[in-house]
Simulated assay, not measured.
Amino acid sequence: MGGTTLNTAEQPEYQHPKHKDYHLRDIVTAAANPAMSMHLGRLEPGGEIFVHTHEAQSETFYILSGEAVCTMGTEQIPFPSGACGVAPPGVPHGLRNDSRETVTLLALFTPPLK
């Protein structure tokens, strides 16, 4: 069995149905990698990934560009480009973009979200 190559630009972008001004591209899903999924996110100025938890997945999110405010548990932390967060199952987490610039991020889920 060979590997898989994927082009992010070919994946359709969609508005996340539960968050404000948060757009996603599903880069890697369980169909390509049964161990994890990876998603490219775009959080617009004033947008918010509302505080939430995952019952079965750990979420690792990495800020590629821009700056957000991260909620992790009960803490609110400035989250600049290069910051990485890991939220195990059941841990409340979210991101808020209070800046004038778009925030781009990678979100990885183990096991896969999709």
Rank of each mutant, 00 (worst) to 15 (best):
C84G: 10
C70Q: 10
M72A: 12
S58D: 10
H16Y: 00
P45W: 06
G46T: 02
S58F: 00
H54A: 01
F79M: 08
R42K: 08
G82M: 05
S58M: 06
T71V: 10
A9I: 03
I27E: 08
V28N: 11
T5S: 11
I63F: 01
R100K: 15
F61K: 08
P17V: 12
L95T: 07
G47T: 05
Y14E: 10
G2D: 11
P45F: 06
P45R: 05
R100C: 04
V86F: 06
G46R: 01
A56R: 13
A9L: 11
A9E: 08
E13Q: 15
Q15V: 07
L106K: 01
T71L: 03
D21L: 09
E101S: 07
V103D: 12
G41P: 02
G3N: 09
A35R: 14
S37A: 13
L106G: 00
L64A: 01
E13H: 12
A107N: 02
H39E: 13
T8N: 12
T29H: 05
F50R: 07
P17C: 08
R96L: 10
N33V: 01
V28E: 14
T104M: 11
G3H: 13
S37N: 08
A107F: 02
G3K: 10
T102M: 07
L24E: 07
F109A: 09
C84M: 14
N33E: 14
E44T: 04
A32M: 12
A107K: 00
M72P: 00
H54G: 07
I77D: 11
L6V: 15
G2Q: 09
Q76V: 09
P80K: 06
P92R: 01
L108N: 15
R100Q: 11
V69H: 00
P34G: 03
P12F: 06
G46E: 05
R25Q: 15
T5L: 11
S37T: 10
G47A: 08
R25Y: 15
G73I: 08
A68P: 14
Q15N: 11
H54S: 00
E59T: 14
T4M: 05
F61I: 14
T4N: 10
P112D: 04
G46F: 02
E101A: 08
T60S: 03
D26G: 13
E67F: 06
K18G: 09
G3M: 02
H93A: 02
L105N: 09
E44G: 04
T104I: 06
T110A: 11
T53K: 11
G73Q: 07
A30W: 04
R100I: 09
P112L: 00
A56Q: 14
Y62T: 12
E13V: 15
I77Y: 14
R25I: 15
D21M: 07
T60C: 01
V69A: 01
E44D: 10
G41R: 01
P78N: 09
E55V: 12
N97W: 04
M38Q: 03
